[in-house]
Design a binder for these strands. Structure first.
Lengths: 107, 107
DNA sequence: AATTAATATCGTAATATTGCAATATATAAT
DNA sequence: ATTATATATTGCAATATTACGATATTAATT
């Protein structure tokens, strides 16, 4: 079908999967790395930097915003995006909890 | 288009995104959690446990195997899947390196 | 007010993913 | 050998994602 059966999973499982999913695209990985390398907020150097169309970059930014990873502020006629450090750390913790809990005791 | 432009990203970015992507489905999160909760290797209790068709579970297992997270051993007429702990730890480290390096210094 | 620049949204095409029924394969049990 | 059981693969339908051009929208500049 193409539709994930979210109803049969717990909220935690769905949330966790959603975090992983949003991070599961190289453009979004690259965007986050680029933002962190600039010592200031970025605007749309990203279009030049990454090499995808402006509409595409905008879409990826939207997905990163959707899980709260980015804050966006209007800065004149451009946008200033930056990483929401609190959320960033929060998600990192959640992923690590998953990794630490999920341990193998077999084979 | 629907096709990710992997050529414009580094191997590291693509690999990282691939790990995230494979973990980015609630069924695969649930499978990993279930395997870790059993004190032994599992076979296909998963079909009953998770509530997806056998073919679907088999597909998800294949994806988890594709990044080396699962080992599968023939056990009579069933399969014994277990988490590859070494790989598991390795991927956890890589994700944490990404999280730690990607830090914000703005806003 | 008109123009320019930056970003967002819409519409659309191409491709990918999810899920399942049906079928194939392989081993154990009879 | 036949049957039963467990898993993998194939083929297909439905939906999602990726990417982009075209078009809003919004704010600064002239």
């Amino acid at each position: 079908m193409g539709i994930t059966k979210t109803q049969i999973f717990t909220d935690k499982q769905n949330d966790l999967a959603q975090f992983f999913k949003v991070l599961g695209h190289p453009a979004r990985v690259a965007i986050l790395q680029y933002i962190s390398n600039q010592n200031a907020c970025i605007c749309n150097d990203l279009v030049e930097e990454i090499g995808l169309a402006q509409a595409t970059i905008s879409q990826h930014l939207k997905e990163l915003k959707s899980i709260g990873l980015l804050n966006g502020e209007v800065e004149g006629k451009s946008m200033c995006y930056c990483i929401n450090v609190e959320r960033w750390t929060d998600i990192q913790k959640k992923l690590n909890t998953f990794f630490n809990k999920t341990k193998s005791n077999c084979c």
